[in-house]
Design a protein around this nucleic acid. Sequence first.
DNA 1: GGTAGACCTGGACGC
DNA 2: GCGTCCAGGTCTACC
Length: 320
Amino acid sequence: MPSVTVSVPRDFVLWRDACSYGYFLLAPNQWIPSEKTLLRPLRLKNGPVACAVSQTGKGKSLRVETSRTLKATEKGELNSQLTRMLRLDMTTAQVNEFHKLDPRWKKTGEARLCRSPTLFEDLVKTVTSCNVTWPGSRGMNRRLCEVLGEGAASGKCFPTSQILAKQRPAFLRGRCGVGYRDERLVQLAKMYAKGAIDVRWLEGAATPTEEIREYLLELPGIGPYAAANILQLLGRYELLPCDSEAVRHGREVLGMKGSSARVAKQVAKHFEQYGKYCFLSYWFELRVAYQAKHGPAHTWEYGQDGKLVTAARAAAIRKK
DNA sequence: GGTAGACCTGGACGC
DNA sequence: GCGTCCAGGTCTACC
């Protein structure tokens, strides 16, 4: 099988950093715990290509097995898409800066959060994770790929903005189960496809965070939570996406009391101590609780019933 | 500026 | 198996 090599920063660990944010569990991503390998189709200039990304050790280059031989320009495209997705552009110096602000994560080395190869996919994944439980979010992303994605049946790409923009809202609702998000997703895709959303400006280091936030809030389907989440996906960690999980964390772990709105404000205030890396501190703290319940994230996989196979559930299955 | 209710789906629960 | 209730964030109307 043809393969490509991708260089990584010396502190990068695939199983830790690819499984750092929930998007590694959303289609078209597929994590294989037993092989510590990430499977996902990528859309390149000459068409889709199925990829299997693996690594032999910390700081070692990634080995990317591809379903077809790539031309030099396509290798460059693959490199830049994986760089965005796995945050390979977050330097070791930035990682150290975060660990200096919050030393709790220095030992494990956690700092990078997995995202999507494109901003458009991040926008759609954010909208499809609002006002819905996690299985619902997984279902929407799976069906978007199955119904609208290009590529082999076993590995369909995430639909592009152009493809999504051409759909009728009722079709999206009926076939992809996106519910009331149908029109908002089509509107978002239309804006993105015609270049009305300035990706360079949004991803530009010089653009003020508050301006980006205000802009995002004007987009269909994007409210305060979604805007803050997209900001962290853009590498801006100073705001917290305060959702029900944040409130639960505030009450159960940080011992906060009062109405949900009050607790949300208290949580945001609490994490301000971590400055520009506020969200990273919050997220890794939240993960400790998840992993205490379900085991390490890189061991998570889904059974044929679509349910998460946690260590506890695996033991229960074995007993049967 | 703050609040209430609708939006839609999947899971949990009771019968 | 069926019906009911609930959780989840955004959006709009209303005060």
